[in-house]
Simulated assay, not measured.
Amino acid sequence: MLLHAETTGAGPEAVVLLHGMTGSAESWWRITGLLADRGVRVAALDLPGHGRSPRCPTMTVLDAAASVAQTLDTLGVRPTVTLGHSFGGLLLAAAVATGRFDPGFAVYVDAPFATRGGHDRTEAQAEYVAERDSRTMDRLRADKPHYGERDCQVEALAASRFDPATAAAIAAGPGGSWPPRPGSVVVRADPSHYVDDETAAALASSGVKVRSIPGAAHSVWYSHFDAFVAALPEVFDR
């Protein structure tokens, strides 16, 4: 499966951005603008079942990870840096662990590294439908006080394009665990649902650099943009 990509900027280095569940390539709009202004080529992908990318009722985590690698290969993008947020981070970890993809410098933003799989497809799809339908402009304004107006517009549009059937297929499919490689960086909200203190300590002991941003939302760069940028000099101060 080839995915829709939003590319911007030009330069000798390339950064790839993988969004979270119900998001889209445009979820990174602040990041893409900053990197492009600094002379970096940026490729932000719409993941399977999101944005303008294809839908698939039999999609699995490894299928989705392979689609990321295939798309970037087709585009001729050899990343210097890859950032994956939440679900995008899971796909990044799976693509790297299975040898499908060389991410360059890998950054995982508040991401899980395992999924148990085997969820009831009907129940999962109903939950994703409810999640999609809850992400209206009015609800986002009320529930996400750290979002600006453009943030709300971007995320409401992304939700309207999100395909619950593709997400439910992934949830119902096989699970797995794909730990990040030593030398990778994890940026987490603190507290974090996906990277709690015990997980952070285990990652650090394995050679992964863990950087915490107290009080940040799950989409860290939305709520704490300056702190997020400051936490990643390898990305933003190259």
Rank of each mutant, 00 (worst) to 15 (best):
M1S: 10
L2Q: 14
L3G: 00
T7P: 00
T7I: 12
G11M: 04
E13C: 02
E13R: 12
V15M: 03
L18H: 00
H19D: 04
G20E: 06
M21R: 12
S24I: 04
E26A: 14
E26Y: 05
S27Q: 14
T32S: 13
L34M: 11
L34W: 07
R38P: 08
R41Y: 06
V42T: 07
D46Q: 01
D46R: 00
S53H: 00
V61R: 12
Q70R: 15
T74F: 12
L75R: 04
G76F: 12
V77L: 05
P79F: 01
T80C: 05
T82K: 01
H85F: 13
S86I: 05
F87W: 15
G89D: 06
L90H: 11
A93H: 07
R100D: 00
F101S: 02
A106W: 01
V107N: 01
P112R: 12
P112F: 09
T115C: 11
R116S: 15
G118F: 10
G118S: 05
R121E: 07
T122G: 06
A126S: 06
E127D: 13
V129K: 06
T136W: 00
M137T: 10
R139V: 04
L140T: 10
P145L: 09
D151H: 08
D151M: 09
A158R: 05
F162K: 00
T166N: 01
A168H: 03
A172Q: 03
P180S: 06
G183N: 02
V186F: 07
A189V: 06
H193W: 10
D196P: 02
A202N: 08
L203M: 10
G207R: 11
G207Q: 12
V208Y: 03
I213E: 04
G215N: 06
V220S: 03
W221C: 07
Y222V: 08
H224D: 13
D226A: 14
D226K: 10
F228S: 02
A230Q: 12
A230S: 14
V235N: 03
D237N: 08
D237F: 03
